[in-house]
Design a binder for these strands. Structure first.
Lengths: 362, 362
DNA sequence: AACAAATATGGAAACGTTTCCATTCAGGTG
DNA sequence: CACCTGAATGGAAACGTTTCCATATTTGTT
């Protein structure tokens, strides 16, 4: 084990007393070799601790054996799971995963793609703010780098692995309607940078209309407000007529319940809440979360799978969306029959001190 | 915009009517050039849509400008956040992030490191099952590839960014003791593959002893059982004398509360629970989770930061552990004075039908 | 025994960079 | 006017592979 910094195939050939070409053939099993030289080369490689330089290989074959993956942020468990799905699918192939994240920034998205392209990735798997108007992504496409989208609805020229947000949201509106809800709200974060949220809102809105319900109230929260319930509490208080909230993700669905409790409202008696994503924790809550279950891991897997076939010369074809599933939970129920102000506030007189207590600890 | 597959610096030089060396100097600002040729080269590069081949560069400079990162799984939000932290620190440098995951498998860990090394990463950031006995990691070290650990306690030869699990766990024992708890349990997943959990257990155990409490009951859950509360319910029922549980992560802390509820126990009246990690959702729960807050994002950042200085020729030095913080929450309280069987079961007669209901929906 | 066919081998080019070195040319100094 | 300095430039080597091609050796067939 001489800890030589770099041992190349040249060193192996030298030690084995043969030419580089022969050593290469032995090490790759890529051509005729005599048993004798095979023995010598393998022994030399082992002794020297040789391993191929992926860079040398990449240069000569113009294949980096690397796929680039861009998501807004790994701090969002949904994206993290999807990336893990990609990874799971890539294990066993010889492809490695180069990742980047944009923190939901349009410009950063584009830069990230450029960087990945200049690293000569063999394929791309992306979730970005606006894939349809990313110059870098278009350029990658022109250069013949196959790209597979995740979470996005289909757009011209790319295959995508996604869940039908519009349809899923329609189902939520339908459930609300069946329980007799009429005045609803849609709660989301960063609507401007999330086509997913926009699609959910669109579907929810469309189905509410179709059922003759009033248009849902659109509640958009800033990043920072999401962790501090006060703002949400104020918003709820300002809309006492809402009986049901559709939250664009499960975290928000849990946050809005916290806000409701601060007002002394009880879920689902005084307010129904439905989330989106289907995180596991939702099942374990005291009042299990009603939500739409999706499969981020599968999404990543599917994106990786199609990309792999595309990289092997196959054609990138659009598969149908991944299924979603309505998880009943217990945060959705019929709205109270009685008028709001009588019912809710009266039922929980000590709401004000409660707020104080919790504000203090936050 | 001729969508030529590959435009190299040779093409640029040709079009600009100069030598390759000159073109390189212009494009890199790395030597004397006349204003005139500079103009021509830049224009040619722009016209042709030239961008450097990172592979060509890597080969010649023997720097891949890539750091490899290995974590057990991105499906665990703690690791995902840490990786995002690494990423955040790397943005702005010219380093890209190559990731891999082992799914908590010892062998896979080693293979992953080998692969990353053969990709010639310039540095490594790793969390693995057992870094101290990974041949591949040792080899990387011998080859002079700097490596920075995450989540691990310090080991010979590597810098690590971590939280003092032992100390944090001692604090939990101390809090339990102060509230008057004596019989406690430690709940964990995959103890064999997580030195973090083992260290927490060790610290918890040590402090319980130091305070004259009985040794904590060690409860280890299989992966699959963690999502299905029945098993946990059975375990709790088998240990009716426990008054407090320290869970090795917040997810388990929430799961054990679910199990307790299935038995009709009320948290924290009948059972105190303390978690670990400090996930945001914990704050939003009806009964806010008592837990140890840690900073995974910072951990990733710190690991990346030290690695960066090491890669720039600096020395990899061990920093003190990152701080943790006890978050009070509301799932920790004094144990009930009365005997168990009187208190708990009698207080919640309808516990059996409740179990049935919930089992059905799971 | 002679020759074709198959097998084994190594030299060299190519992949896209950067950088060392040598060359050319202009301008300044004695 | 000869000389030196410094700037500008391009050729070529090197980084580690794979692969084409040509050569050398063995095997098999008449």
């Amino acid at each position: 084990m001489p800890p030589k910094a770099k041992v190349t195939i040249k060193d192996v050939a030298l030690k084995a007393g043969c030419g580089i070409a022969t050593a290469s053939r032995v090490l790759n099993n890529s051509g005729p070799t005599s048993a004798e030289v095979r023995e010598r080369v393998n022994r030399a490689a082992l002794d020297l601790g040789f391993s191929f330089s992926a860079i040398g290989r990449a240069l000569q074959s113009s294949k980096s054996m690397t796929v680039g993956c861009l998501v807004p942020s790994l701090a969002n468990p949904v994206f993290a799971e999807a990336v893990q799905g990609v990874q799971n699918e890539l294990v066993g192939t010889n492809y490695q995963l180069l990742i980047s994240s944009s923190n939901y920034d349009d410009k950063a998205d584009d830069d990230a793609i450029s960087t990945l392209v200049s690293k000569e990735v063999d394929g791309l798997i992306v979730t970005m703010v606006a894939p349809e108007r990313s110059p870098a992504l278009k350029l990658a496409h022109q250069r013949g780098i196959p790209a597979s989208l995740m979470f996005h609805d289909p757009i011209e020229g790319f295959a995508t692995s996604y869940v039908d947000n519009f349809e899923a949201a329609r189902e939520v509106a339908q459930r609300f309607s069946e329980y007799g809800h009429r005045r609803t709200g849609f709660l989301a974060l960063r609507l401007a940078t999330s086509d997913r949220s926009r699609n959910r809102y669109a579907g929810f809105h469309a189905e509410c209309r179709a059922r003759g319900m009033p248009d849902p109230v659109l509640i958009e929260l800033s990043e920072t407000d999401a962790n501090r319930p006060e703002k949400l509490t104020a918003i709820l208080a300002a809309h006492p007529d809402l009986t049901a909230i559709f939250a664009s993700n499960d975290f928000l669905a849990i946050a809005v319940q916290k806000a409701a409790r601060l007002l002394g409202w009880i879920v689902p008696r005084d307010l129904s809440v439905v989330g989106f994503d289907g995180i596991e924790i939702g099942k374990l809550l005291d009042v299990p979360l009603t939500t739409i279950e999706t499969m981020p891991e599968k999404m990543g897997r599917q994106a990786a799978k199609s990309l792999l076939t595309a990289m092997q010369g196959g054609v990138l074809e659009q598969l149908p969306p991944l299924p979603f599933r309505f998880r009943a939970g217990a945060t959705l129920a019929a709205p109270r029959a009685k008028s709001r102000d009588d019912g809710r506030v009266a039922a929980q007189p000590p709401s004000v001190p409660l707020i104080k207590t919790i504000l203090k600890q936050g």
